[in-house]
Design a protein around this nucleic acid. Structure first.
Lengths: 347, 347
DNA sequence: TTGTACGCGTTATCAT
DNA sequence: ATGATAACGCGTACAA
């Protein structure tokens, strides 16, 4: 039923190798036969079978992108960047959404190994260091993380430094009782950034001030923030592991009647589009997500080209974006700072 | 380098067929050899090559999901639902992001045909009816759309009816000069819903009231709304093709100093999470996206099982969600309607 | 310039 | 219960 090289060759009265040649543009072929073969290919709507091709070439021209939650707006941007580069280079991408589940993540790694993907991008892994090392040893990977195994190539996000900067910002604004809301108890790089900022300023961190959630969504953060603010009403500021958590906190404050930033200052992380769309707009740390995805894929291409022998990390830069959720606003109207300036804006 | 059946067979002192049998759980195998083979497989970390498997079986256990923009929060949810079902059934999913570009969409369809995917889910296609028919004839597809080709199976979204309902809501609130902002000029199902509502109520639609954009994002909608409201300041309400467009409109109103809903009522479509997070919260039409993705994948499985001979559409239900952006708010505090009710909420 | 024959790793058909 | 062998569709030596 399905058209193969054989069919095209027979129909064109040539050998399959000749057809193969015109398809891959190799060797010298007479213009006449080339044209004829091309026509037959069109007529028969022939399409090379990637499976067969991959079987012999040992390459599948596919890569896997492993992420915890595509519904977190952080990841679609990363995906976009990675996919753009992948497509440019003829690669397709398998999307592997792990639902924040380490076991599902490992299962996907295995599955993708079976698919003989040429490489794997792991972003926002929920694996522990040992597991990640293990995966990196057996596969060609490009890891996007703030805790990259030394043995694996990838993109390094200065998350601890970023959160530290954000927390320091709160401290500079005069806050002393600052809490943290984030993933826990294991994935604590960001929390460490918060703790570092507190330590550097000789500020105590009460254990009740740190709240852990199992996944970062507006809803889970909303619940967690509600509990946190009940247990630790003395907090005047909250550092959140990402913007979704910060938005959940905003909602919790609204529900509790606490005004932001007056009654509670809030900082997020990631600078997803949502951060600038909520009220008050979030002060947060910008991560160039599209670039990160792009760089991760470029790095993966290098790993593939280097036959796996490459373990370089590239560190991206992040920077704070000050908006309204901490009360330290510099001029300008709240509504249009992050969009192009409209012409003739009325007062 | 890579471990094959052969290696396992040799090491276990059996034929490759025997190994194949224990892997696929076929035929009668003595417990002894089965155990031994299993052990060797573990030792060698053997993994069946899907490419080879697919070559002979004619199946790749992979499907393609084609979407215009993963950064539109509509699609991640659809993806999640589709992926969950896919994984349950042992399928992997290729993500094909077309960037709203019909040519890239067609290119992806071709590419995926080469990959010998077992089926394709097309969601939010930018192809015209003829192109879509064409694709549906040559591939096993499940199409998520509000304009499903009769010949193809899929999930049908009552977008026109939904927009009509939303626009009618505006009309019931007393609005007469209502505009529409959406994708154009081709993909106009939603616009038609708006026009139907206006027609049913004998209201005119000035050509200046309908604004087309080439893609639906906050940013493009912001620009478009700015222009629209300048050209047609007489509008008192705006029906938007989706929530992102509605949020862009909200931003434009903020920039122009027009209050929502007082100076302009706004309705969206999709009910993405963002809709309930902006201020004022959007009145919109809820689409059960996760369910849609799930159903689409289930439908695709049926198409595959039926050997492509299936063209049934399943229509999903949508419903209006009234929030604050039209001024027709029923009781309750704005902030917590869409999250679980907190205990002991202060006044 | 073009063709033949083999192998990629697996499943399936027959034997034994 | 197990094994030899032929496909699957394509690329690559090696010939011609």
């Amino acid at each position: 039923m399905t058209v193969t090289l054989r069919h095209v060759a027979d129909r064109a009265g040539v050998s399959i190798k000749t057809v193969s040649r015109v398809i891959n543009g190799q060797g010298e072929i007479s213009e006449a036969t080339r044209a004829r073969v091309r026509r037959i290919i069109q007529e028969l709507d022939y399409r090379p079978n990637s499976l067969a091709r991959g079987l012999v070439s040992g390459r599948s021209d596919a890569i896997a992108l492993i992420i915890p939650q595509i519904t977190d707006p952080f990841f679609p941007d990363v995906l976009l960047g990675a996919e753009a580069v992948a497509r440019e280079h003829g690669y397709s991408v398998f999307l592997c959404n792990t639902n924040d589940n380490p076991e599902q993540e490992l299962a996907y790694v295995d599955m993708m190994a079976g698919k003989r993907v040429d490489g794997v991008i792991i972003c926002g892994t929920r694996l522990n260091a040992a597991q990640l090392e293990q995966v990196a040893r057996h596969h060609r990977v490009s890891i996007i993380s703030s805790r990259n195994p030394a043995s694996a190539a990838g993109i390094s996000l200065p998350a601890a430094a970023g959160v530290c900067e954000a927390a320091s910002h709160l401290i500079r604004l005069g806050h002393r009782r600052i809490g943290h809301l984030g993933l826990g108890p294991d994935e604590n790089v960001r929390e460490q950034g918060y703790r570092r900022a507190m330590a550097e300023h000789d500020l105590p961190v009460e254990s009740a001030w740190v709240k852990h959630v199992s996944s970062l969504s507006v809803e889970t953060a909303f619940q967690a923030a509600l509990e946190l603010l009940e247990i630790a009403p003395e907090l005047t500021a909250l550092s959140c592991s990402n913007d979704l958590a910060a938005v959940g906190t905003l909602r919790a404050c609204a529900a509790l009647g606490r005004r932001v930033p007056d009654d509670l200052a809030v900082v997020g992380f990631d600078d997803i589009e949502l951060a600038s769309l909520v009220t008050p707009a979030l002060t947060t740390v910008h991560v160039p997500r599209y670039e990160v995805g792009k760089m991760a894929m470029e790095q993966l291409l290098r790993v593939i080209a280097a036959d796996g022998k490459l373990s370089e990390h590239i560190e991206v830069k992040v920077h704070m974006v000050v908006r309204d959720s901490c009360g330290a606003r510099r001029g300008a109207a709240a509504s249009d700072r992050d969009l192009h300036e409209p012409t003739g804006e009325p007062a």
